[in-house]
Design a binder for these strands. Structure first.
Lengths: 240, 240
DNA sequence: CCCCTCCATGACATCATTTGTCATGCCCTT
DNA sequence: AAGGGCATGACAAATGATGTCATGGAGGGG
């Protein structure tokens, strides 16, 4: 048996990081520095496509979106940014600062609209307000991994829309897998974190429950999502 | 046996109405008209105290808050507005429009800050954006009646912060009571709506379950909330 | 290529929970 | 004081969750 590492991963809830979608290097850098000075972490995407990719990847709390980008108007991707399920907020930053522009931005889905140039303090204050609101949401509710949806509060699981009824133990197991996608999880880890055991019960409880979970997750002929790593443990691999 | 009225009561989710807290009659009226023109319903409170009272009463989606009011600065009541549990958003409207003022407002809890004078279109767009975000929340989740909280998704009940573990049937019963506070519910109604029976099973199932629910709701010495209406049925009376 | 280890799975036992029934006794009302 | 209505403890049946075990199969190392 391997050592029982305890790796704490974050859930897929809307986080407190910010994604900056901005083609101009200078502006992007400045935004990043302003936020960093306020203790707000950020990543940067230089194009709309990259922005969409990053947003789909990590659950940001807020996205700062430029309007005039090489790929088109930032407003165009707001619907897709929304579609990711995380309750991410979108703030548009733009040199187009007239009222009609602002109204257009807000009507097309932005949560806030700040005209350039702006005071760094106001950006920080508005970003904080947005992150605060996002964090206050019961937002940690839905976790999506591939075609699997986990409703934490309701403690239900759906795969491709089909409801998968799980027992409490199975749900806990599912959640632990979901918290560690792509990682090999040894039986010891599972026993510790799902069964709260710090010793080996000398039985195959884990195997049996993994089997039951598999059966239920694949009951309608869906592809497998839990792979056996022979001699080691199991890996949860959500199908993209 | 009485007729089984089905009175649909609203849940405590944040709604789509707007509360205007503004002492100046002219401004308040204009705000109301602007919103009405955009199809957004609103109520008005003329003072901070009235605002707090109304906010506690109805679950607004958005509150428009003036700063300079007779009772003090509107910013002062933001924490209390937040405390109501509904995810209501707060937008501050103020003649104090300098960056420092805006930053102050946002830092003290406002979700948005619009300086007077403003374009009606921008107010509408921002109000819509706020309501949209509030509505996107899993808001219908929490129902509060007096000291009892019902989390619909999680299917859990708390009284005065204490978790009350209920069986499925008990939860359904609790929910039905919560949907009809202050109304006399006959055994027949309960059998119909909680047990899905259209006939009398000739047993005291209802009594037994009401008893069990009572026991659990009052397990820590809390005052009774379900009163027996002798010869008729039961009444759920949440303690204020 | 064969064997041995590891794993998957059906069957079963046990335990806990939920739900409904009944009998008893209290309490309120008249 | 008596009667009907209600509260409640005890019990039983049904259901579901969890863990154990035995068997057979699959896959990798030698």
């Amino acid at each position: 048996m391997l050592t029982s590492e305890t790796i704490a991963l974050g859930t897929a809830m809307a986080g407190n990081r910010v994604l900056i979608i901005e083609d101009d290097d200078g502006t992007a850098g400045e935004l990043g520095r302003i936020l960093e000075g306020a203790g707000i972490g950020s990543d940067r995407a230089a194009s709309l496509d990259e922005g969409l990719a990053r947003a789909a990847d990590e659950a940001y709390g807020l996205i700062l979106l430029d309007r005039m980008l090489p790929g088109g108007d930032g407003l165009d991707i707001i619907p897709q940014l929304r579609g990711d399920g995380h309750g991410t907020a979108v703030m548009v930053l733009s040199a187009l600062g007239r009222t009609v522009n602002r109204v257009e931005g807000l009507d097309r889905g932005a949560d806030d609209y700040l005209a350039k140039p702006f005071e760094p303090e106001e950006l920080i204050a508005r970003a904080r307000a947005m992150l605060r609101r996002v964090a206050a949401q019961p937002g940690a509710d839905l976790v999506t991994l591939g075609d699997i949806e986990i409703h934490l509060k309701a403690r239900t699981v759906h795969r491709r829309g089909r409801h998968v009824a799980l027992s409490p133990k199975e749900f806990k197991l599912m959640k632990f897998f979901a918290d560690h996608p792509g990682e090999v999880l040894t039986r010891m880890m599972l026993l510790e974190r799902v069964w709260n055991l710090r010793f080996d019960p000398q039985t195959n409880v884990v195997d049996v429950h993994v089997g039951r979970l598999r059966k239920k997750l694949e009951a309608a002929g869906e592809p497998p999502v839990i792979r056996t790593e022979r001699g080691t443990g199991y890996i949860f691999e959500p199908s993209a």
